[in-house]
Amino acid sequence: MAKKVAYSAILVALAMIFSYVEVLIPFHFGIPGIKLGLANLVVVIALYLLKPSQAFSISVVRIVLVAFLFGSMPSMIYSLAGGVLSFTVMLLLKKSKGFSMMGISIAGGVSHNVGQLLVAAIVVENMSVFYYMPVLLVAGLITGMLIGIVAKKVCRHLRVAID
């Protein structure tokens, strides 16, 4: 139990640092709102190393804490929508088997963007934001792939350390 809590706490802290550091990394598509999603790296790894419930709480706690520290109420709602949707999709795909970490991470990146866009459409009560959908789909694909590559490499080493 104590070990579980310790791992969760370390991963939440790491995800928070990633959210903060991400702003410093120049990674621009020329479209507003596209980020690398470094914090998702932690969620993907947690999904593979820990129980789904633990991974989920790491994701939610990270979002809430980051919003309180650096963001605002609206930014928390966007992040939560993206975070919860992407977690659900990643968990379902992982359970369904046949996807590698790469596929899971890509699905997470894409669904994260879709979730945020859905909330944006509801907030402005206008369907025209869906104009961004194609760009955001491809962006999620690319960022998901990058995160997947790193997650795979990190996980191999972490598994040894945890056992």
């Binding site: 046949g98 590698s100 959908m133 194609p134 789909l137 491809v138 694909l141």
Partner: peptide, 19 residues
């Protein structure tokens, strides 16, 4: 690095974006 289903997923997302 990629499994079969991963590739299917990537192609599906690209097709959806294109459509």
């Amino acid at each position: 690095m990629f499994k079969k289903k991963d590739v299917t997923l990537i192609i599906a997302v690209l097709i959806l974006a294109g459509l």
